[in-house]
Amino acid sequence: MRGARTAAALAAAAMIVVPASAEAAAAQAHVPAAAAAASPAKVANKLLRAWLRDDRAAAAAVASPAAVKTLFAYVYRAPDEFNGCAGNACRFTHTSVRVPGGLNGILMIVSGGKVAKVYESRHVTAPEKAAQYLFAAWKAGDRNRGLEIASTGAVKTLFRTRFGGAGYIFQGCQAERGGRSCAYSYEGGAMFLHLRGSKIRGYEVRSISYIAD
Rank of each mutant, 00 (worst) to 15 (best):
M1A: 14
R2G: 13
G3T: 10
A4H: 14
R5F: 10
A7I: 11
A9Y: 15
A11P: 02
A12Y: 06
A12R: 11
A12Q: 09
V17R: 03
S21L: 15
S21M: 15
E23R: 09
E23P: 00
A24E: 13
A25C: 07
A26C: 09
A27K: 11
A34R: 11
A36Y: 01
A37G: 03
S39Y: 06
A41P: 01
A41Y: 04
K42L: 14
V43S: 04
A44T: 02
K46A: 15
R49M: 11
W51V: 02
L52H: 05
L52A: 12
R56S: 08
A58Q: 09
A59S: 05
A60H: 02
A61Y: 08
A61T: 03
S64K: 07
A66Y: 06
A67R: 01
K69S: 13
T70H: 03
T70Y: 00
L71A: 00
A73E: 12
V75P: 04
V75Y: 01
R77M: 08
A78N: 05
P79I: 00
D80T: 06
F82D: 06
G84Q: 03
G84A: 10
A86N: 14
G87Q: 05
N88Y: 06
C90P: 02
R91C: 07
F92P: 00
T93P: 00
T95G: 06
T95N: 10
S96Y: 04
S96F: 07
V97N: 06
V97L: 14
R98C: 02
V99C: 02
V99D: 01
G102A: 03
L103V: 05
L103G: 00
G105N: 03
L107A: 10
M108G: 00
S111V: 05
S111T: 11
G112C: 09
G113Y: 04
V115L: 06
A116F: 11
K117C: 08
K117G: 01
K117L: 12
V118W: 01
Y119R: 12
E120M: 13
E128N: 14
E128H: 09
A130G: 12
A130Y: 07
A130K: 04
A131I: 11
A131V: 08
A131H: 04
F135S: 04
F135K: 05
A136E: 09
A136Y: 05
A137S: 15
A137D: 02
A140I: 09
D142A: 11
R143C: 02
R145K: 13
R145E: 11
R145C: 06
L147N: 03
I149A: 13
A150D: 04
A150G: 08
T152A: 14
T152G: 13
G153N: 12
G153Q: 11
K156Y: 13
T157C: 03
T157L: 00
F159V: 08
R160F: 06
T161R: 14
T161E: 10
R162S: 15
F163E: 02
A166T: 15
F170Q: 07
Q171R: 15
G172L: 04
Q174C: 03
Q174F: 07
G178I: 09
G179L: 07
R180D: 04
R180G: 00
S181C: 10
S181W: 01
C182I: 04
S185I: 03
Y186H: 13
G188Q: 10
A190F: 07
M191L: 15
F192M: 09
H194W: 05
I200M: 11
G202V: 03
Y203E: 03
S207L: 01
S207N: 13
I208V: 15
I208A: 01
I208Q: 00
S209L: 08
I211S: 14
A212R: 15
D213K: 15
